[in-house]
Design a protein around this nucleic acid. Structure first.
Length: 733
RNA sequence: GGGUUCGUAGCUCAGUUGGUUAGAGCACAACAUUGACAUUGUUGAGGUCACUGGUUCGAAUCCUGUCGAACCCACCA
């Protein structure tokens, strides 16, 4: 810092400080000052997706993580923040396919290997950019330990888990109804889908004497029953009977069953049961032992009779036309209804019957629930615990296979390969062509262990990205039993966005308890989303995103950090915009100028005077007549900040350090001190100043490190530490 | 349908277990500034703390209900 300049120039200062921290390896738990530290504090940083540069939301999380890390370093813990990057299976595949499309290349033009290699390259470039961004925001993570979720050893651990779960019966290959994305050509877990309200039509179709209201007449041929509510007086007497119908599929008989899930208020109160193309109906089918018929394939085309190969919507029109000709359409109403869409590509989801890999989640969920009940895991804010519990209590089996290329290929092998057949009745079966054996193994077996068949074919599918990322807390440390695992696992805090509580946090607890026997972290802090000035979610499609780099270039990193955390509360979304960051820049400048003033005031002391000054500070007996009040206020301030930090009230702490420095330290104390020039007064000034700088360091690390270094250069403080990062936090013994 | 959060100054937001006169920043007005800072300071104006009823010596804070906004989960056949 050149204190000749009237205004603070963050750019050059931050660059120097950053180099100083990195060159000396200060972020590492192996750094010399950590040598005698026993208590560890570790955070697994949520690995951002390696398919783009970081957005502000990720960086707001990084800032909170870093504040916690720096605070704990200063209260004497051996701190490890572990960075990583996530391959983000489907999302990255979608993003990368678009990039290829721009070059006029279609995914299927490439071999699987080429696609993978190119996508890997793409991710490595983003990984580098993201790392630079993380470093620039001051994230004090140990990059010698940085990992990518597709690193070989990580994948190996993921495979080990899969194999163990398979052998213990927690993983099965099953025929179930799944969410199928026709655009992405893959199965999706429920959680990977969203709902969107759309205008549609409700068709009232005659089934013999009864009328059924449906939005999906094209699945009519897959009906296997009609269902009514057992309490519905209109239809109660029909339960257990059958109805003869004549319709486009000819003459046939459908059983009438009772199911409590049928809403008597909707339509006519009669539901057509289509287990092959509706999740609810699939459940009804299971409960009543009904057959399953499929009439739509994975391309979203009809497979039945004369409608074969028509797209769903074309088929619907044609079928309605034919029904009308037969006089079977009673009426058509307009309806607003929610359609299920793919979270990634936003296209409509088709529920289809398919063979996929599933995890039996019920037992795992029980353990994860127990962890919370036994107070082994705490949520900030506490109310999120309810969401966590409700998710786990209602959890369904987790579909972990995806029909994609970018990710970890499932280590399952089929004797002779497999094929899926829809028979003439519309029944889907998966047939393993050899002796029927499925071999789960990390390496490809030479032959089938059961029948000796040499023709062994690997499953084409990859894992859901969350299958690997939920194992991240121990895999990133090198796995169970590794040196880092022993020292840093379980970790202390999971700090992440409130939007991935279910995707990641809850499943991480389940998976890690299974693989390590321990709850992976004892505290979960969930932050809100960063919104734009109008309170809208920032997104690339809206173009309302704020580029973190712009803010840093314009106002400096410390200013941006403060604006990301000051006055926030956990879980609560907050707005960020130019003027806000500018305000914090003004505060940082205030710190600069006040320090400039202090250095001018201290003036050129002789070495004797400096040593007297330091002795006065060390003795603690430096009260001067004019400023007794400040000591009491400092004392309260320090204990408040420590209390806030312990309760994860980061927003309050950030707000208070700024407020105190500006309006108590500068506006009152510093003004008063203008009249005092004794060595005692100067000692007092330096002492209070230093306390404030230390208090502020976790939040605004750059300027505080810079001031600290000047205090040392000027020989105004004594310390064996090279950096403020390892100084003792005020109020901590 | 179930759940959560929010509603405080013109705007953006704090308000730590219920406790004097409800705070900050931005914006606004006036004044000041020769030991730092016009990216500053001082002072001021600006609030029925959404509304309603209750608990309490005392409510922005706790409880009932209403209105408005946002979000999550489930489902819409």
């Amino acid at each position: 810092m050149n204190i000749e300049e009237k205004a603070y120039n963050p750019k050059s200062v931050e660059e120097n400080i950053l180099n100083f921290w990195q060159d000396n390896n200060l972020y590492s738990p192996e750094y010399k000052s950590n040598k005698n530290r026993k208590k560890t504090f570790s955070i697994i940083l949520p690995p951002p997706n390696a398919n783009s540069s970081l957005h502000l939301g990720t960086m707001s999380g990084n800032t909170i993580q870093d504040i916690l890390g720096r605070y704990h370093r200063m209260i004497g813990d051996k701190v490890l923040l572990i960075p990583g990057k996530d391959h983000a299976a489907i999302q990255t595949e979608v993003v990368f396919e678009k990039i290829l499309e721009k070059k006029g290349i279609k995914k299927r033009d490439l071999t699987r290997e080429d696609f993978y290699t190119q996508c890997y390259e793409f991710c490595m470039q983003n990984r580098k950019i993201a790392k630079t961004q993380e470093l620039n925001i001051g994230l004090s993570a140990d990059y010698s330990r940085e990992r990518f979720t597709l690193d070989n050893d990580i994948t190996n651990m993921v495979y080990d888990t899969f194999i163990r779960m398979f052998n213990e019966g927690y993983i099965y290959r099953g025929k179930r109804i799944i969410n199928w994305c026709i655009k992405d050509q893959t199965a999706l877990a429920d959680i990977d889908t969203e709902y969107r309200e759309e205008e549609g039509k409700l068709y009232y179709i005659k089934y013999g004497d009864l009328t059924v209201a449906t939005t999906r007449p094209e699945t009519k041929m897959a009906d296997v029953a009609l269902a009514v509510n057992p309490k519905d007086k209109r239809y109660k007497h029909l339960i257990g009977k059958s109805i003869q119908i004549v319709s486009i599929e000819g003459e046939r008989s459908l059983p009438i069953i009772g199911d409590r899930g049928v809403d008597p208020e909707f339509g006519t109160g009669v539901l057509k049961v289509t287990p092959g193309h509706s999740k609810e109906d699939f459940k009804i089918g299971e409960n009543n032992n009904l057959p399953i018929i499929s009439v739509i394939d994975t391309r979203g085309r009809i497979t039945y009779g004369k409608y074969k190969d028509l797209k769903i919507k074309e088929g619907r029109e044609k079928i309605v036309e034919d029904l009308q000709k037969l006089g079977l359409i009673e009426k058509i109403e307009d309806i607003k209804h929610n359609i299920q869409i793919c979270e990634r590509c936003k296209q409509e989801i088709e529920p289809l019957i398919s063979y996929q890999w599933f995890i039996r989640t019920k037992d795992f969920a029980k353990e994860a629930i127990k962890a919370s009940e036994n107070n082994e895991i705490h949520f900030y804010p506490k109310r999120q615990e309810n969401n966590y519990m409700r998710f786990l209590e209602n959890i369904e089996d987790w579909c972990i296979s995806r029909q994609q290329w970018w990710g970890q290929r499932i280590p399952a092998y089929y004797c002779g390969g497999k094929e899926t057949i829809i028979d003439s009745k519309g029944d889907i079966t998966e047939k393993i062509l050899g002796c029927g054996e499925i071999i789960v193994s990390k390496d490809k077996p030479n032959e089938c262990p059961k029948c000796g068949n040499k023709n062994i074919v690997q499953d084409e599918d990859i894992f859901d990205t969350w299958f690997s990322s939920t194992q991240w807390p121990y895999s990133v440390l090198g796995g169970v039993g590794s040196k880092d695992y022993k020292e840093f696992y379980p970790t202390n805090v999971m700090e992440t966005g409130r939007d991935i509580l279910f995707f990641w946090v809850a499943r991480m607890v389940m998976m890690c308890i299974y693989t390590t026997g321990k709850v992976p972290f004892s505290k979960v802090y969930l932050h809100g989303l960063v919104l734009d000035k109008e309170g809208q979610k920032q997104s690339k499609s809206k173009g309302n995103g704020i580029d973190p780099k712009d803010m840093i270039d314009k106002y400096g990193t410390d200013a941006l950090r403060l604006s990301l955390v000051s006055s926030i509360s956990p879980d609560q979304d907050f707005r960020l915009y130019d003027e806000k960051v500018k305000g914090f820049r003004n505060f940082i400048n205030k710190i600069y100028n006040s320090s400039r003033f202090i250095f001018l005031k201290i003036g050129d002391l002789t070495e004797d005077e400096k040593s007297k000054l330091k002795k006065l500070i060390a003795s603690g007996n430096i009260h001067t007549k004019t400023n007794i009040k400040i000591h009491a206020e400092m004392h309260d301030h320090i204990s408040n900040i420590n209390r806030f930090m312990k309760n994860f009230e980061i927003g309050l702490a950030a707000f208070q350090i700024q407020n105190f420095y500006h309006h108590t330290f500068c506006d009152i104390y510093l003004e008063e001190m203008k009249a005092h020039n004794s060595i005692e007064a100067k000692a007092d000034l330096i002492n209070i100043f230093l306390q404030n700088i230390l208090l502020m360091h976790p939040f605004i690390p750059f300027i505080t490190e810079n001031i600290y270094q000047i205090l040392k250069e000027e020989n105004l403080i004594d310390s064996s530490e090279d950096s403020i990062m390892y100084e003792k936090y005020p109020g901590i013994k």
